Computed example of a mutant assay.
Amino acid sequence: MGQFFTDWGIRIAFTPLGIVVALIFIGLPFVVRTVEPVLQELDRQQEEASTSLGASRWQTFHRVLLPPLVPAILTGFSLAFARGLGEYGSVIFIAGNMPMKSEIVPLLIVTKLEQYDYAGATVIALASLVVAFIMLLVVNGLQHWTRKRTGQD
């Protein structure tokens, strides 16, 4: 994929951009699998009623389609985030482990373990766990707020 961007002077391999691209491809199936069933269950008649009552496309999207999709999007995002946080195999090839530029958390943990620095590996893993826990709390709070706001609670 990087060959198409080299003409514009954009490097993807061994850069943070490459890591983001790899994590998007890894996490996208989680988002799709949570959003797709919600899209299939949406009532087409509500969308048509909104349009027939004079709502614009943006208003229809914002008021009819988006509210039931937000919890599914947040769930998919949290699953993709959790997967990306611990992803090692596919990202390691594109990250390059360049110090202070393209290091990833799982590789730092493995490096610390290879150096027999168990305390350092534990600190990095604990920090990663805390970040993941905080993100899940935020996502759950947003889901609860969204359900309460849309009357699904």
Score class of each variant (00 low, 15 high):
97 N>M: 06
46 Q>C: 06
139 V>E: 03
131 V>N: 10
119 A>I: 15
46 Q>M: 09
125 A>G: 14
23 L>K: 07
93 F>D: 09
114 E>H: 11
33 R>F: 01
22 A>C: 14
51 T>S: 10
106 P>K: 05
73 I>K: 02
91 V>S: 07
2 G>I: 00
30 F>Y: 12
143 Q>C: 12
43 D>M: 00
6 T>E: 14
48 E>L: 15
151 G>Y: 03
5 F>V: 06
33 R>Y: 05
114 E>V: 12
61 F>R: 02
104 I>D: 05
153 D>A: 15
20 V>T: 15
39 L>W: 00
44 R>N: 09
112 K>R: 15
103 E>P: 02
153 D>L: 12
68 P>I: 08
68 P>W: 01
82 A>P: 03
25 F>A: 14
111 T>C: 02
10 I>C: 13
84 G>S: 13
3 Q>H: 13
38 V>P: 06
76 G>Q: 11
4 F>A: 14
135 M>L: 13
53 L>F: 10
102 S>V: 07
93 F>H: 11
35 V>S: 03
3 Q>T: 11
144 H>Q: 13
42 L>A: 07
8 W>M: 14
144 H>C: 02
151 G>P: 04
49 A>G: 02
42 L>Y: 01
12 I>R: 06
68 P>D: 01
43 D>G: 00
114 E>I: 06
89 G>R: 04
119 A>T: 14
140 N>G: 09
27 G>A: 05
134 I>M: 13
59 Q>R: 14
41 E>R: 10
101 K>W: 10
86 G>F: 08
98 M>C: 01
106 P>W: 03
127 A>I: 14
7 D>H: 08
53 L>D: 06
34 T>C: 00
79 L>D: 03
142 L>F: 11
70 V>M: 11
149 R>T: 13
108 L>T: 04
17 L>Y: 06
